[in-house]
């Protein structure tokens, strides 16, 4: 309980710091503050997909219903985070490039991530509950994951990006000043914490339901 209150206070602090403590990035202005929310959201979106895929592989190796549940719940959480990352990205794009959507390579790749999540959940909903659904969904999750590195590799070769990480992150070195860096890392940690909290709550709920059904 005390941990949760502390975590809530921490997140409030991070949000306040993003607006008050960190200076705006050079050349991007006040709208650059969205980086403290957009990047962590996108990171969690990808992380959840990775966790979902790893649990799919674990399921195929050892068919426990719990692994399937973990894969499915991560897809659901990841979809929400990815959607939020897409929306915050579009707001930033409107502020700096003048349009919400222009099929920038980054927008294309996050859109494909959304499509994969969507397709995965549609596949699950069109199968009946049980072992077959778990297996088919796991296979799809792995097959879809194969296309992701291809996309990351080829799209930037074909189209030029306007995404600001080449501006802020020149030649692989993070060009943020100390204050920006502090808030950025704190926010990354905070959002990963939120993800972990939602995820572990769902797993606990699942285990309680399983146990109650076992007693009947």
């Amino acid at each position: 309980m005390i941990l949760k209150i502390l975590f809530g206070a921490y997140m409030l602090l991070v949000i306040a710091a993003a607006f008050l403590y960190a200076p705006p990035a050079l050349g991007l202005g006040e709208i650059s503050r969205i980086i403290y929310f957009h990047v962590p959201l996108a990171w969690v979106g990808v992380l959840a997909y990775l966790v979902s895929m790893v649990n799919s592989i674990r399921y195929l190796k050892r068919p426990l219903a719990e692994y399937d549940f973990r894969a499915a719940i991560n897809a659901e959480i990841g979809l929400v985070f990815t959607l939020l990352a897409t929306v915050t990205g579009a707001i930033f794009a409107r502020g700096t490039w003048g349009v919400y959507w222009n099929w920038d390579p980054r927008q294309t790749s996050i859109f494909v991530l959304l499509l994969i999540y969507g397709a995965y959940l549609v596949l699950r909903s069109s199968l009946e509950d049980g072992e077959k659904r778990a297996r088919l969904a796991a296979v799809y999750s792995i097959v879809a994951f194969i296309s992701v590195p291809f996309l990351v590799f080829i799209i930037p070769r074909l189209y030029v990006t306007l995404h600001p990480d080449p501006i802020i992150n020149q030649s692989g070195q993070l060009q943020m000043n100390a204050r920006m860096m502090q808030v950025f890392l704190a926010s990354l940690l905070g959002f990963t914490g939120i993800y972990w909290w939602i995820y572990s709550l769902q797993v606990r709920l699942y285990k309680v339901v399983e146990r109650l059904e076992g007693q009947k």
Binding site: V112, L115, S147, F150, L151, I154, I155
Partner: peptide, 17 residues
């Protein structure tokens, strides 16, 4: 309807290239 939905994200890198 399911096949195009499932295939599109997987095939997108191939189609673009």
């Amino acid at each position: 309807t399911l096949l195009p939905v499932l295939s599109f994200p997987v095939l997108l890198p191939l189609l673009i290239t």
